[in-house]
Nucleic acid binder design. Structure first.
Lengths: 179, 179
DNA sequence: ACCTCGTATTCTAGCGCTAGAATAGGCCTG
DNA sequence: CAGGCCTATTCTAGCGCTAGAATACGAGGT
């Protein structure tokens, strides 16, 4: 009954406006969701099929094609809209424990030669700075608040990681005291 | 050729000390890695098989069983140790873009009834506070630095999220200015 | 008329992983 | 020494997902 993040993303896009598969693909790439949601091109029709089988979306007539094969436009059913709201609410409320790969790497720190580790941390610092700049640049001040909050979240997480990394690179071996 | 986080975790545990499948299971639960790594009981032997097929670990004789069926002890091969170091280094260096479910939920914020959204955010705040307390309690000051750094990371991320959440709950609709 | 190009969907094989049951073997107890 | 029990491993079926190829179809050029 629960929706995966990918399913919720797709369903949400359809709640926003009825669309056909190809259009979803376009929207996903246009909004830069490809990187985040990890919904591949092939998955779209697959997920659409699952959502339809569950009765959360339904074919809302076929659109007059610009050119080429007829396209199937999908729209959420009333059930689908409810499910979307419930799943979104659930996603907001639940804190998912994360153990990102970087921590797995750090847990194996003892096997990494020290100078390689230092270099790896430097590479991370660079990537982090670049990412922060990128997110800042992408964050339009005129975006609606519910979009801004997403950027704020990402930025907050990235900056926290940056502070942590700076402290850690500064004194890689010395234990530090609590705040 | 790359190792998944789960594979790296297991391999790392074997680099630490040769072990058999059941023991890995015990270590994983004892260290609380179950929640983080999402390595199910069934996966252990499966992953062990894959690592062996790739020549990264090998059976290092069977241990005298305390009682019951003979157990197969696995130890990393020289290749395995190298792969572990390389993968750990890689994991430390690369920044993986994350788009946690909470953001997917927030992206669908407009379909959530406002009072439900407020309640969901409140639940999240509670869970967050509890988690922070839990991590703080688990962070032993006498732990080796390479373990402490992991707790520091988690704590930094959680606290950043807490600040973000507090700000957001304070003014859920008003746009905020940049730092 | 035919052919090609651009749009859009569907199909197929197969990989990675998981749950859960089945199996195996030695010890201990009566 | 038969039976149960505990430790460990292995097997099996199947799910979810993906890449990539195959298909379908109309418009426009020649």
């Amino acid at each position: 009954m629960d929706l995966t993040p990918a399913e919720l993303t797709l369903l949400g896009l359809l709640v926003e406006a009825p669309r056909h598969g190809y259009e979803l693909e376009e929207v996903i790439t246009a909004r830069g969701l490809r990187e985040w949601t990890e919904i591949g091109f092939s998955s779209i029709y697959y997920l659409l099929g699952r959502l339809r089988d569950r009765g959360l979306i339904a074919e809302a007539g076929s659109d007059g094609p610009a050119r080429g094969k007829a396209r199937k436009v999908f729209a959420p059913t009333p059930d689908g809209v409810r499910a979307c709201a419930r799943a979104a609410e659930e996603a907001v409320a639940t804190l998912r424990p994360v153990f990102p790969p970087v921590l797995v790497g750090l847990a194996n720190q003892p096997v990494i030669p020290p100078e390689r580790l230092r270099a790896a941390l430097a590479r991370r610092a660079e990537a982090l700075a670049a990412k922060i700049a990128e997110v800042r640049a992408a964050a339009r001040p005129d975006a609606p608040p519910f979009v801004r909050v997403i950027f704020d979240y990402s930025l907050g997480q990235l900056e926290a990681e940056q502070r942590w990394l700076a402290a850690y690179r500064g004194e890689p071996d010395a234990p530090r005291r609590e705040a």
